[in-house]
Design a protein around this nucleic acid. Structure first.
Length: 467
RNA sequence: GCUCCCUUCGUCUAGAGGCCUAGGACACGGCCCUCUCAAGGCUGUAACACGGGUUCGAAUCCCGUAGGGAGCGCCA
């Protein structure tokens, strides 16, 4: 089995509906699909599931594609680049679906349903109350053609329902969960075409995967129990079954499905905060997936180390502290030029070199910019203590030494050491706090070169003895 | 309610009956290095949800229980 998975080209797809921004969970699924296709030398297809005209927006479609591109997940077939199975927007595939609907109706595998939303709601309610699963009661399944004509004459609009075969066992081997077995008696007849003529998810999603040549459907666990419906549909149409794999969902720290209240959850939000694609991908690579590489991996090296047989079944918690770790790795690997672009504030090369090891996100650079050319915020408790412990005499000496050394930090500390007899932290910490206002931060030497001598002198003198 | 899925350190996970005194990574603590932070090196704390079986032997197999999740939509 795994030998087959490794060797033959795998065709995967990502099929988002353009009703919102790219969620991190979806991004991970897309990433796994991308990796699997790339690993096997197959193809990665992007298909837009926009049959719900009410909620679909072109803007979301473009955003989705922009975020995928930003992450570096390029597709081989898609709405913007075309391909052998075009079109790749379901809104444009109506003709194809219509032919299949006709086929199903002709073979009595689907039937028009005239039930209204209210009737269905009531029916479900009643079933729930009597302890039964809320399934379609089959009201319209056995209408005679005369009864149908009568309803049509009354101007009722019909949806199309799939006639679920009775007493069928549906079996398939999920590539993540293993063998699965469901009874068709647990499945009610479901809508495959809405009464406005558009196709419903179960239907177009399944037939498109089949006809587009997808060999591996990889999606979230929430679709596991939907799979038998889609299999029934494909079987009825005599269409090829793709393989199905369902990965555990991404959840928040509290174990609940990832949502807005967990903070940033969309790729866009992470991009805007300054997280790097390579950091996000290194993190997602290990969320619900175990690779054989321990540390950092360049994105280009990931497909070879993607192991579909090591995809997780349990829900994975998204923990930003782990993302931050990969972000640090990613920042450390950027060139100075890349960091300047990333910071986007026209900082000097010297400044960038000075602060780069103290940055996780671009916003972290702001306080250091202020240290160089702005005003210092009031000192914290620990910092006040450092200043007090050093004493005014120390800063008097420091200011004098600075008069001789100017911005040569080595020279400054050498003179100060001789004058005060201080060394180590006793020598450096007061200087650090006086010059930066903080007890932590990047090296002091380069800072003196970055800031104006006047500012440095002023900061040292401000703690000196007043005469 | 019914069907299905899931459960190993705080988090991501390794683990396919003896290789497990349960391994690694992140986070956290300590030590070293160091003016501080970061980086690096060493090191420490910390988990098989619970209860029954099967077996010479179970984190691994079976059955229950508990907890979490999904589906049962003219949403996808």
């Amino acid at each position: 089995m795994s030998a087959i998975l490794q060797s033959s080209p795998v065709i995967t797809r990502f099929a988002p509906s353009p009703t919102g921004s790219l969620h991190l969970g979806n991004a991970r699924t897309a990433f796994f699909c991308y990796l699997w296709a790339r690993k096997s030398g197959g193809r990665f297809i992007l298909r837009i599931e926009d049959t719900d005209a009410e909620r679909s927006r072109l803007r979301f479609r473009d955003e989705l594609m922009a975020e995928l591109r930003w992450l570096g997940l390029d597709w081989d077939e898609g709405p913007d680049i075309g391909g052998p199975s075009a079109p790749y927007s379901q809104a444009e595939r109506g003709e194809f679906y219509r032919a299949l609907f006709a086929q199903l109706e002709m073979n009595d595998q689907a039937y028009p349903c005239y039930c209204t939303a209210e009737e269905l709601e009531l029916s479900r309610k009643l079933q729930r109350m009597s302890g039964k699963p809320p399934r379609y009661a089959g009201t319209c399944r056995h209408l005679t053609s005369a009864e149908r004509a009568q309803r049509e004459a009354r101007g009722l609009r019909a949806a199309l329902r799939f006639a679920v075969p009775e007493d069928r066992i549906i079996e398939f081997t999920d590539t993540v969960h293993g063998p699965q077995r469901y009874a068709s008696s647990d499945i009610g007849d479901f809508i495959i075409r809405r009464d406005d003529g558009t196709s419903a998810f179960f239907f177009c999603n399944a037939v498109d995967d089949s006809v587009m040549g997808v060999t591996q459907v990889l999606r979230g666990d929430d679709h596991l129990t939907n799979t038998p419906r889609q299999l029934l549909l494909l079987d009825a149409l005599g269409m090829r079954r793709p393989g199905y794999g369902h990965v555990g969902l991404l959840v928040g720290a509290d174990g609940a499905p990832l949502s807005k209240r967990h903070g940033s959850t969309s790729a866009q939000e992470f991009r805007e905060r300054g997280f790097l694609p390579a950091a996000i991908l290194n993190h997602l690579f290990r969320l619900g997936h175990t690779s054989d590489i321990e540390g950092w991996s360049p994105v280009s090296g990931m497909p070879a180390h993607f192991r579909p047989e090591h995809l997780g079944r349990a829900p994975a918690r998204f923990d930003e502290t782990q993302l931050v770790h990969w972000q640090k790795e990613a920042v450390g690997r950027m060139s100075a030029a890349e960091i300047r672009v990333w910071l986007g504030s026209g900082d000097s090369a010297e400044f960038v070199e000075w602060v780069r090891h103290n940055l996780v996100l671009p916003a972290d650079a702001a306080p250091w910019r202020a240290v160089v050319r702005g005003d210092l915020p009031p000192l914290g408790k620990g910092e006040q203590h450092v200043i007090a412990a050093a004493g005014p005499e120390f800063f008097t000496a420091a200011a004098e030494a600075f008069g001789q050394s100017s911005s040569d930090f080595k020279q400054l500390t050498k003179i100060l050491k001789e004058r005060t007899g201080r060394k180590g932290a006793d020598l450096y910490m007061p200087l650090r706090v006086a010059l930066t206002g903080q007890a932590h931060g990047p090296e002091l030497g380069p800072l003196l070169k970055l800031m104006s001598p006047e500012t440095a002198r002023r900061r040292l003198e401000s703690y000196a003895q007043h005469s």
